[in-house]
Structures are given as C-alpha cells and as structure tokens.
C-alpha cells in the first residue's frame, strides 16, 4: 500500500475538468421570430415614469383601448387625443401605422 493510499487518496482519480472558459455560439438559416408588440400592462412603470412614449396603432385599436393599456383606464383616452391633436382630428378614427405620442403620468 502506498503512502498515497494510506492518506485516503486514489491514485487514478482524475482532476475535475474545467469548462469555465468555454466559448459557444449559434447561427441559423432560419430567421429569428419577430419580437412581440410592446403592450404594456396596466400599472406598469410606463405610466409612472413621467416620460412620453410612442405607440404605433395596429388594426382594431381605439384611443380607449390604448388608454386602457397604458393607463389602466379607458376613460383616459382624451389625454392621448390631446397629445396628438395635430394628427387626430376625429378621436373615433385612428389608422393602423399611425405613431401616437403617449404622455406619461
């Protein structure tokens, strides 16, 4: 029995392999999925930062719906209307692709 064995070690025990600096990557012929449309949840920080945001109108939107998304209250639609008077003549008529300024709280 060797001294090594007496000390409780194993002669053939390999040191643990080190993978701390492994570099990795990937690429694909496939496109990456389109990022989801930014739809803030009611009560998120959007309404509390005090900074304006830009929102692009999509099909099926109304000022009430957008107000509900950003402020959590559909009745706040007039704030968005006021901030976009230059491009919204009729608050019942907004168009997909229109970029609206959403005033912060």
């Amino acid at each position: 029995m060797s001294i090594f064995d007496k000390l409780g070690g194993k002669k053939d025990e390999k040191p643990k392999a080190d993978f701390s600096n492994v570099r990795s990557g990937s690429s694909s012929t496939a496109a990456q999925p389109a990022p989801p449309a930014p739809i803030p949840s009611p009560g998120s920080s959007v309404g509390t930062t005090g900074t304006d945001q830009t929102y692009t109108v999509v099909s099926g939107d109304s000022l009430s719906k957008i107000a509900k998304r950003y402020y959590g209250d559909a009745n706040q639609w007039h704030r968005i209307h006021e901030a976009n008077r230059d491009q919204i003549k009729n608050p019942d008529l907004i168009h997909p692709g229109q970029k609206l300024r959403i005033p912060g709280a």
Binding site: F19, V22, R23, A30
Partner: peptide, 30 residues
C-alpha cells in the same frame, strides 16, 4: 462531459420556414 458536467447550454429562437439548418458550436481557448 463524461463525468456529467454541463459544458455549455445554448438556446436559439427561430422562425423556420420549411427546411432550415441551425448550428451550435463550442470551443475552449486552452
């Protein structure tokens, strides 16, 4: 690795159309 250690784990999001190929690779400078 053979001892069960995880060497690397990479995820890639794709929007495939019909036949596509995606590659993953690893290397170690030392």
């Amino acid at each position: 690795f053979e001892d069960g250690q995880i060497v690397d784990e990479s995820t890639r999001a794709i929007a495939p159309v019909n036949h596509e190929r995606t590659e993953f690779h690893i290397s170690k400078p030392d």
